[in-house]
Design a protein around this nucleic acid. Structure first.
Length: 292
DNA sequence: TTCTACACTCCTGTTACTTCA
DNA sequence: GCTGAAGTAACAGGAGTGTAG
């Protein structure tokens, strides 16, 4: 479903199909080929490059934070973006102290949000870190729409989105990770369903072929029936591959490996082969002349 | 040029919390 | 009100990658 943007990442590492699983049995409609990905990525990066300057001017949102104090974001950006060394190397490479992934809340809060009076009623600073906060509907909608455009974010984009939504960058990052995981899970389930159907079809086909083989064997072992259906003079069988062919009329339909040339076909009754004392090779069966 | 350390991102699995029937 | 299932935010650890020294 929402996976149409797989490989539409914004960082250079995300080339075409980077995140594609090896199993691509149920290819979802690819929204954009590689060139389109690149174009969109460029547009997006350009967009955020311009917004980056705005960020540098610190046009801080005056909105009310839903979950966390906006000061958190602001402080984080001071630590991360405003550094002259790291600001533009967002694609890869060393950056400043990034937002500490695991300990962000602990690392930030003492320095950035001393108030610590969150409206989530967490009671304390530390236990609020694991406090689960439901994203608002508006936030979810924006995140979803952003995800539809690109399933990954570079640090600038993450930061801009976090500011826009009054979330911490870490929250945005986690949301995108979980969203990718959900997308992949659904795709895996869809692939699984597809494989199941394939398996069912193959089982059915196999059953049908087995039945056909049994019928042919029965045909082979019952001369009377065989006679009734196909006179021995018109039915030939290769002892090696046990293929039966009515070779009386069309030589062209006879496979090459049946070795009997059009003019030299030796009509053989099917049933007698089993009674032959020695295994008959292709060579002997094939061309009596070659034996001499 | 190669090696190593570091920073970073992503993926995957898990945990903890919320919501709902 | 209690409970279990489902959904999901948050975390932890490992793998892969790029850069600097």
């Amino acid at each position: 479903m929402g996976d149409k943007n797989d490989g539409l990442g914004l960082s250079l590492r995300l080339g075409c199909g980077q995140n594609q699983p090896s199993l691509k049995l149920n290819p979802m409609p690819l929204a954009s080929p590689c060139m389109q990905n690149i174009q969109q990525r460029n547009i997006w990066n350009e967009l955020f490059r311009s917004s980056e300057r705005q960020l540098d001017t610190r046009s801080v949102l005056g909105g009310i934070d839903v979950n966390r104090a906006p000061a958190t974001t602001e402080c984080e950006e001071e630590g991360g973006i405003s550094s002259p060394n790291s600001a533009d190397s967002n694609i890869s490479g060393k950056r400043n102290e990034r937002d500490p992934v695991g300990d962000e809340t602990e690392a930030e809060r003492p320095s950035c949000s001393p108030s610590s009076d969150d409206e989530d009623g967490g009671g304390g600073d530390d236990d609020a870190s694991r406090k689960k906060l439901r994203l608002s509907k508006e936030q979810s909608v924006v995140l979803e729409e952003t995800f539809k455009e690109h399933s990954t974010l570079n640090p600038k984009q993450k930061l801009a989105l976090a500011m826009k939504l009054n979330l911490r960058p870490r929250q945005v990052e986690v949301w995108f990770q979980n969203r990718r995981a959900r997308t992949k899970l659904k795709r895996t389930e869809a692939d699984c369903e597809y494989l199941k159907r394939c398996c069912d079809n193959l089982t059915e086909e196999n059953r049908r072929l087995q039945k056909e083989v049994q019928e042919l064997r029965a045909l082979k072992l019952s001369p009377q029936l065989n006679m009734r259906i196909n006179p021995p003079t018109t039915l030939t069988m290769c002892p090696s591959c046990e293929r039966v062919s009515s070779s009386s009329s069309s030589a062209a339909s006879t496979p090459k490996h049946h070795h009997l040339g059009p003019g030299r076909q030796r009509p053989v009754s099917v049933s007698p082969w089993a009674a032959l004392p020695l295994p008959i090779t292709h060579q002997s069966f094939n061309d009596p002349a070659s034996r001499s």
